Computed example of a mutant assay.
Amino acid sequence: MKASLKLRDDAGPLLRAKLPVALFSVPAVASLTAGDSADLSLCLATAAPSLPSLRLSYAPNRPAGTSPLSLSLVLGPGPGGCPSAPAGASAITMAVEVSAAGAISFSLSLKPSVGDFAVRKRFESVDGEGGASASELTMRSVVPVRGGAATVRIRWGVRIPAEVTAGGEAGAPRTGVTLRRLPFLVLGKVTVETRSGKPPPAPEVEVQEEAAVEKVRKVNEKLRKEVEALRATAGEGREKETAELAGTHRNGGGSSPANISRKLSGADVRL
């Protein structure tokens, strides 16, 4: 499950929740969006790893004259037009939305990123009228929770105010521009994502674990062979000492108990 809270200046916070589901054996995601009354919507989207995403959305509080039901096709640079790249979110996605009333809209989202830094830009077109959102420079912080069972992602943004005025006194020619306020840092979005089961180890950690197990197996095999060789050597020594004692008695040698004891202990010293 994945939940996020987006903070907005011109409206209340926007809450989104996503839950993975299965749609006729096809992986899908069910999502709920809530904020202001106009933001309420339900969505069901396919999430096949090598196909475009097909989304069915229902927004009951859309403006009058528009249909609350719409169908969207989302394309991306992934395999087969998948909007999700193998390493995460795609740098570019395009969506075509058709409402039940026949209205068609297009949107293009640009999200190039380098490490934890990204730039976001969105273009939209409805019935021939287009518009573009302001550019946004963002950075991301990731905090693991409960040993990796969940992660909290915090998206920060650098905002440059649009308040630009001409300087100079009244009647004087406007020769320069001045920013009334300096750029400032804002908190844009907080996302919490839970993971089912134990998180898989990183590839390099898995390779190291396999190498350690193989090393322990080889050491155990070497110790087992050395123990078997020691046992065989000890058995041969006992058989040889027994044969020497038996030969001494047959030859009539007068060995005292002390002499026999010394033979058994491995020292052939006669008194």
Rank of each mutant, 00 (worst) to 15 (best):
P79S: 14
I104M: 11
G147K: 12
G80Q: 12
D116G: 07
T151W: 15
G254W: 02
A150Q: 09
R217T: 00
K18T: 06
T138K: 04
G128Y: 00
F106M: 02
G128W: 03
R270H: 14
G237N: 11
S109R: 04
A229M: 07
I160L: 08
V142R: 11
L56D: 05
P68C: 00
P13L: 06
F184C: 02
R159A: 05
L185E: 01
E163G: 01
I104Q: 09
V142D: 10
N220P: 02
P200R: 05
E228C: 03
T151S: 06
A118R: 10
E129C: 04
G81M: 02
S255L: 14
I104D: 07
S57T: 08
P144Q: 10
G266I: 01
I260R: 13
L32H: 09
A162W: 06
G253S: 10
L40P: 07
S113Y: 06
L51D: 01
R174S: 10
L108Y: 04
M139L: 05
L56E: 08
P112R: 06
K111E: 08
L23A: 08
D127G: 09
D36Y: 04
E129V: 01
G147N: 07
P68Q: 06
S256E: 03
S50D: 15
G115F: 00
M1P: 08
V145A: 10
P144A: 10
G176W: 11
H249M: 11
R262D: 10
S125W: 05
N61R: 06
A64F: 08
G167M: 10
S109A: 09
I104S: 03
Y58W: 15
V192G: 04
A132R: 00
P13V: 01
A134Y: 02
T93G: 08
E244T: 09
V216T: 12
D10R: 07
A11N: 09
A28E: 09
G171S: 07
L15Q: 05
P49M: 09
L51T: 04
S256Q: 06
V177G: 10
L15R: 07
F106I: 05
F184H: 12
V205G: 09
G247F: 13
A48T: 07
V21Q: 05
A11L: 05
V207S: 13
V142S: 13
L14T: 03
A91E: 11
S37F: 03
L271F: 14
E193G: 02
Y58L: 01
R140K: 13
G254R: 15
S141E: 12
K218I: 04
F106W: 14
I104E: 12
S31Y: 05
D116P: 00
A234M: 06
S84E: 12
D36G: 15
M139I: 02
A28N: 14
I104T: 13
A170I: 04
G247Q: 15
L230Y: 10
A87K: 01
V213D: 02
P63E: 02
V158P: 06
K2H: 08
L182S: 00
G266R: 08
P112L: 00
A232G: 13
R155Y: 14
L5S: 06
R231K: 11
G81E: 03
L14Y: 10
K2N: 14
V227H: 05
E209G: 10
A211K: 15
P27W: 00
A234C: 04
P60G: 02
A85V: 01
P20N: 06
I160Y: 03
A87P: 09
V145S: 08
V219Y: 14
L7A: 02
K225A: 13
V98K: 13
K2T: 06
L56I: 10
T165G: 15
A229K: 03
